[in-house]
């Protein structure tokens, strides 16, 4: 049990997917202008990432490895993720319309979120067991949400500040992300 907690903490804080592993930066910059969109994106990522992590683990172990098809990994993982996102979208629209309205346009965007694909590949490369894969998928997603929401809060404040013209918009956002990343850097060596 202790091992899983350590794994979870290292995925959320130390190896934070956005700020230490550089994955999923497009939605990080794209959806962090407002707090609402950031929360929506974070929820959608937690939802899809856990499902995708589990399903790609199953596909990899029981189909690709069994039949010696590891070279098809990239192709099959992206297909699984794309199909999963589509399926989740249709399912939510039919059965939980409130949640669908909340996640809205963020669901289709997740297909090209490299955080999802990246975590699936990390799970396979590190040869995690099923339970470990489940824990890492969930904690990476939580780490993504944490960083995204923190960053959105900071960015809302930046709107009030007077930023020099060439630094405006994406440029200042990247510098801010760098400083935020520096604070997460302090967790290194904790475990």
């Amino acid at each position: 049990m202790g091992d899983y907690i350590v794994l979870a903490i290292s995925c959320i804080l130390i190896n934070n997917i956005l700020l230490a592993q550089y994955l999923g930066n497009c939605p990080f910059l794209g959806t962090s202008k407002k707090m609402e969109t950031a929360v929506g994106m974070a929820m959608a990522v937690v939802f899809v990432l856990v499902l995708a992590g589990v399903i790609t683990w199953i596909v990899n172990t029981f189909i690709l490895q069994r039949f010696g098809l590891e070279y098809l990994r990239t192709l099959s993982f992206i297909l699984v993720i794309a199909a999963l996102v589509q399926f989740v979208e249709m399912f939510l629209k039919k059965s939980i319309p409130a949640l669908y309205a909340g996640l809205g346009i963020f669901l289709p965007l997740i297909t090209t979120n490299c955080a999802v694909m990246g975590v699936c590949l990390i799970n396979v490369n590190e040869e995690y067991t099923f339970l470990q894969a489940l824990v890492t998928s969930f904690s990476y997603a939580v780490g993504f949400g944490l960083a995204l929401i923190l960053f959105a809060g900071v960015r809302e404040r930046i709107l009030l500040a007077r930023v020099p013209k060439p630094l405006q918009d994406t440029s200042i956002a990247l510098v801010t992300a760098g400083i935020l990343s520096l604070t997460f850097f302090a967790f290194k060596g904790m475990v």
Binding site: P166, L167, S171, A177, G178, I179, S181
Partner: peptide, 19 residues
């Protein structure tokens, strides 16, 4: 060469491009 440097460096390069 660590993560924070990557963000800040890209941000400043973007700033130079804008100028």
């Amino acid at each position: 060469i660590e993560a924070p440097g990557a963000f800040i460096c890209l941000g400043l390069m973007l700033c130079v491009m804008n100028m």
